[in-house]
């Protein structure tokens, strides 16, 4: 087995086993996986050359759906929460998507931001329904009807999330290699030709957009359940910015990078927040600039370069294409 494949499997094993050695890491990793799913949604859109500054909207839609379900049924059921949260985020994705896929680049990014700001202010203003700025508690749900203790639930949530992430990552990877996934990518390079193949660029982008909203929704439900509380902050623009940041950090366009980025980001945030709380966004901002200007393929790009050096060979044209960053300059 080549090193290039062995290392990711090893990393996955370390993530799976880490909580056994260091119990504190379990919650952090669960949160990181939840964010990683949402980041995957951003990564997907980057393949079409689009950046959304408002995807926290779908994260929050799903999280609040789970919270409402829990409130309505005194605790609720995890599977139902996931189904409802996913359904709600897909529905919102379709509604918002029908509008925003008419636009590209600046308008696309900013209209997404506008929609998320609208939702944020609704969450804050209609406090009699949403609990306002204090948000809503999410009680620990049952899992397929079984009530669980806290420790057992957290362990289950972590391993459940891990399996879900691996499965979803595989699906997205296959989607991106499929005919429709490749058409989705051509929105970045040549929409005119796509239309002249008889394919609607808007509908193609809409498919990807709805999927990306669903990914954010899955992440939102997991986050809500893991944290036990949802607040309007879930929909805030800083959350959206964070998702975009992690996508770029991991390696824009890389499915694995979404999760690697999320785990590293979350680990650093948890440990650095204590002494950098006031300047956290500033740190992120400088990092983002540094990555864009000096390492535009992110962590995954650095990994590939390291592997190339270890295997002592130059990338062929096909490989550079596989590792190509949607964000990279032409």
């Amino acid at each position: 087995m080549s090193l290039r494949i062995a290392v990711p499997i090893l990393l996955l094993a370390i993530v799976a086993l880490l909580p056994l050695v260091a119990p504190w890491s379990q919650v952090v990793l669960t949160l990181a996986l939840a964010k990683g799913l949402a980041v995957l949604g951003i990564v997907l859109l980057l393949h079409a050359g689009q950046v959304s500054f408002g995807h926290a909207l779908f994260f929050a839609v799903a999280a609040y759906s789970a919270a409402f379900l829990g409130e309505a049924f005194a605790g609720g059921e995890l599977v139902m929460m996931i189904v409802l949260g996913l359904g709600a985020s897909l529905f919102f994705g379709l509604m918002v998507g029908l509008f925003v896929v008419r636009y590209r680049h600046i308008f696309f990014g900013m209209l997404n931001l506008a929609f998320s700001m609208i939702f944020y202010s609704i969450l804050e203003k209609f406090y009699h329904v949403t609990g306002g700025a204090d948000g809503m508690q999410v009680a620990r749900p049952t899992v397929v009807g079984i009530e669980m203790e806290r420790a057992g639930f957290e362990t289950l949530l972590f391993y459940g999330s891990l399996v879900l992430c691996v499965a979803v990552a595989w699906c997205i990877h296959r989607f991106l290699s499929s005919p429709i996934g490749n058409m989705f990518k051509t929105i970045k390079t040549n929409e005119t030709r796509l239309e002249y193949l008889g394919i609607s660029a808007r509908q193609t982008l809409l498919v990807g957009y709805v999927v990306s909203a669903g990914l954010c929704g899955l992440g939102g439900v997991l986050m809500a359940v893991a944290q036990g509380i949802v607040t309007p902050e879930y929909a805030w623009w800083i959350r959206s910015g964070e998702l975009v940041f992690i996508a770029i950090l991991g390696g824009a366009g890389s499915v694995a990078g979404a999760f690697v980025g999320a785990i590293i980001y979350e680990a650093v945030r948890v440990n650095a927040a204590a002494f950098a709380a006031d300047v956290w966004q500033m740190v992120l901002g400088f990092f983002l600039l540094a990555i864009i200007l000096f390492a535009s393929r992110g962590l995954v790009g650095l990994y590939e370069r390291l592997m190339d050096r270890l295997e002592n060979k130059k990338p062929t044209s096909k490989e550079t294409q596989d590792g190509r960053v949607p964000g990279a300059a032409e």
């Binding site: 699906c171 296959r174 989607f175 290699s177 499929s178 005919p179 429709i180 996934g181 490749n182 058409m183």
Partner: peptide, 16 residues
């Protein structure tokens, strides 16, 4: 991609 467009190949898990 052009052929897939012509034949309307939408299966999401088939490789291009």
């Amino acid at each position: 991609i052009a052929a897939a467009a012509r034949e309307q190949r939408w299966a999401p898990f088939m490789k291009l």
